[in-house]
Every structure is written in structure tokens, then in C-alpha cells.
Write a protein that binds this DNA or RNA. Structure first.
Lengths: 222, 222
DNA sequence: TGATTATTCAAGCGACTGCTTGAATCATAG
DNA sequence: CTATGATTCAAGCAGTCGCTTGAATAATCA
């Protein structure tokens, strides 16, 4: 018998979940959430071999999470729609809520003192309008150039110490990075708080900000 | 070196996705979204062997999606929180939006004419208050008894033909069942429309209704 | 206590995954 | 057309997954 429609449906749903079930593919999705990219670029950023990345990307495409198009000799992959971002976010939310392991890892990042609650994106907008907050984008320069929150200043973790003297010690500092799987912002906040600054994370990363339909600024260093 | 925190995090996230990556576990989650239950009950409802169901349930527990408690000689499993339902819903939403296969299967269920858009839960509430709609719960009687939407009438697919004469041919009929993975409501709507009734599905199933915080009626046949 | 019922454990199997390697394909540039 | 660069395909290997089977635990009941 030709397998019931119910079984066929469940198999398709499982296929989507399966696409999210490998760390390598989560890394690729995280990168793709920043901006579309060619296979070779993605392979380099994630540390995978090109052939391996290609295979993972094809699996993501089969699951309907990404699409690809040819551009000259390169093939550009991109997220299919914002739902993929929502799925990634929910996945990490479930993991953080229900897996003791995850909270341990994240707490470990923030050193001795517990990190404060992240600021919501809506609140951040208000604070930015008031000018009562310094916003840091903790991602590599090329990702910052591909799009960032207006008013944000780019800094990698390595840069951060050098940047400290230029920061207003009175203003609150908000850091963000790639999104749910990215720990740069966690680490930046920990470092800043160690130095005595009043720092916290933004809830979500740039992909979530973009998914909200909020303004994005494209182009070089700010 | 003790694997970077980043890798460790991704592995945990992947673990959650992996738990959703097998049709058998999706079936179990669908059942658990109706009501908590013992291993043997779940095994019978899903057609799995008891040992197999037990192993799947343990995997779900490791992923933080369900919890268990002992009750006499039985072990009762239940969803850990509403996030699991959200995750299941999003998974099916992505699959339906991005996988041609899925839409083919679902369209195949509804016969010749395409099915109308489902009614939102908020709209349904309004229509129920006005009394301009007949609500059908297309699930087995025991699940209906464990909780259903107030005002709903229980009917399995097999019952449905017998029930037809009692239905108001003028009123619109709305059907719902277990949730995102359940096709009973699809099938019921197709059957009713074939018979000339004005029928459509409710968006989501009982678990989503419950997750909204809406009223649930518990107890026997209505 | 021993018998019963519900669940879990442990071992084994066939199938599938993720990764590597090396060759094949495809589009552009000379 | 051939050469080059980017990607994909194909084969192979170690490791994991899902399922089955039969035994081992737990909690109740007579």
C-alpha cells in the first residue's frame, strides 16, 4: 500500500526538522541569516570543506529552508523566507528553557556576575531615539557592511578593548550579533561588565531585527 | 581542547531538532499535545511497540520537550510547556510553505475543489457567540472527553455520514482536530463539501486553542 | 511473599548520516 | 576551443539511528 497521507506528511515535517538537526547546518543557517552568500564563502566562514558545505546546503534546500540561484560561475544561497529565522529562534528558545546544559554554557560565558535581561528590540528603538544608549554590533566587518542597525558601531571582540576609552562610561551599552546561535554579544557584555561598564544584550540579532521590518543601514564602517 | 562553547551550544540546539526529526516522535508529540498519557496508551494510539515508544519518549525527554512522572506502576508523559506546540506548528508551517510535496498531499485530501482558507480562532469565537456556526471536533471520543472547545460536537470520520441529517444545511460548519499534523479535519471538510455543506477548517487544533488560553470543556459527549 | 502489570534496559541488525577524497559538470574568460 | 574557477557528484568509511527481541526493574495486588 502506498503509505497513508498521514505518514507521508509526517515524513515531510520530519525532513524539515532533520535539516536543523546537525550543528554544521545550523552554522550555515546562521551565516545565511546575515546575508546571502556563495558556497565557497559559506564554507570558509564556517570552517567546512567546500564539498561538505555544498552537500549540507543541498539538504537545506531539499527541506525548503534555503533557495539558490546561479550568478556567473558561483551559486548563491539564501534563506527562503523569514520563517526559517523564526524556526531557528524558537529552537534555541526551547533549548534554553528546557535544557540545563544550555543555561550552564551561557552562564559560563558571562563570568561571575549573572548577565542582566536582554533589552527588547522595541525598547532599544526608544532608547536610541532618546540617545541614551550606545549600540555595538559585535560581528565581523563584512557582515556589518552587509547590513546593520542604524546608529550601531562595529567592533569585534578583539577590537573591543581598544575601543573602551572612547565609550561613554555613563551611558548604557547594548550589544548584538548574529542571532540566537551567536555568542559574541554574550561575550562582549561579559567583558564590558568586567571593565565596569553598564552593558546588556539586545534580544535577538540582526536577522530578527530585519524580520521585524525595522530599518537596516548598508555600507562601510560607521 | 574541550570543544568551544559555540560548538557545544549548537550541539544542544541540534539535539532538540533531532528529537523532532523522526515521524514516530512527531506522532507521539501530537498525542501528547492532546493530553498527558502513559507509555502503553501512547504506544497503542500511535501503533508503536511499547519498548519502541518508551525509547522515543526518553529521547524527547532528553531534548527537554516532555517530562514524565510516576503514577502507580505507570509513567505519565506530558509536554514540558507550550513552546513544544509552537515548535510543532512552526515546523508544519515551514513545510507547508516551502515543500511542494506537502501542499500536494494536503490538496489531494480535499478532492476536486480547493479547500477554503481556514477560519482563525479569534473569528471562530465571534461566530460562536453569534451562533452562526456549527463546530465539529473530529477526534476519537476519549480525546474529546479529555478536553474540547465549548459548543463543539464530537464526531469521528466514520460517524460523520450518520450525523449529516442532523446538521443545519444553512449554517457554516467548522471542523478542527488535533493540530498541525492532523488530517482528520481536512478530510472531514472535504467530505462535507462533497455533500454540499459549507464547511471549512479552524486554523490550528485543540492544542493551539489551549495555548491561546481559551476556554476548554472537559467531560463526556456533548 | 509471589504473581501481575507497566516500563525500561541491553544487545543486535540493517539502514542511514556526515565527512573525506577525487573526479565530473557547468559557466565564463582567453 | 581550451583553460580556469566554482560547484556538484560519486564512492567509501566510521559512526549513529530506529526498530526488534528478550531480559531486568518497579510498583502494586492477592
Amino acid at each position: 500500500m502506498p503509505t497513508s497521507p498521514k505518514q507521508a506528511l509526517l515524513k515531510e515535517y520530519a525532513l524539515v526538522a532533520q535539516a536543523l538537526a546537525a550543528p554544521a547546518r545550523l552554522m550555515l543557517l546562521e551565516q545565511l541569516a546575515q546575508t546571502e552568500a556563495a558556497v565557497e564563502t559559506l564554507a570558509r566562514k564556517t570552517g567546512l570543506t567546500v564539498a561538505n558545505a555544498s552537500q549540507h546546503l543541498q539538504q537545506l534546500r531539499r527541506a525548503g529552508l534555503v533557495t539558490s540561484r546561479r550568478a556567473g560561475k558561483a551559486v548563491i544561497y539564501r534563506l527562503r523566507d523569514a520563517r526559517a529565522i523564526a524556526l531557528m529562534g524558537l529552537l534555541s528558545a526551547v533549548a534554553e528553557a528546557n535544557l540545563a546544559q544550555v543555561t550552564d554554557i551561557l552562564d559560563g560565558l558571562s563570568g561571575d556576575a549573572p548577565a542582566p535581561e536582554p533589552i527588547t528590540r522595541a525598547d532599544l528603538v526608544r532608547r536610541l531615539a532618546q540617545g541614551t544608549v550606545t549600540l555595538l554590533d559585535i560581528r565581523p566587518e563584512d557582515e556589518f557592511a552587509a547590513g546593520h542597525i542604524p546608529g550601531a558601531r562595529n567592533a569585534t571582540l578583539a577590537d573591543l578593548d581598544r575601543l573602551l576609552p572612547a565609550l561613554d562610561p555613563e551611558a548604557e551599552i547594548v550589544a548584538y550579533c548574529r542571532g540566537p546561535y551567536c555568542i559574541y554579544a554574550h561575550q562582549a557584555v561579559a567583558l564590558l561588565r568586567n571593565r565596569g561598564f553598564n552593558a546588556r544584550r539586545m534580544d535577538g540579532g540582526l536577522p530578527e531585527w530585519r524580520a521585524d521590518g525595522r530599518a537596516i543601514l548598508t555600507g562601510g564602517q560607521s
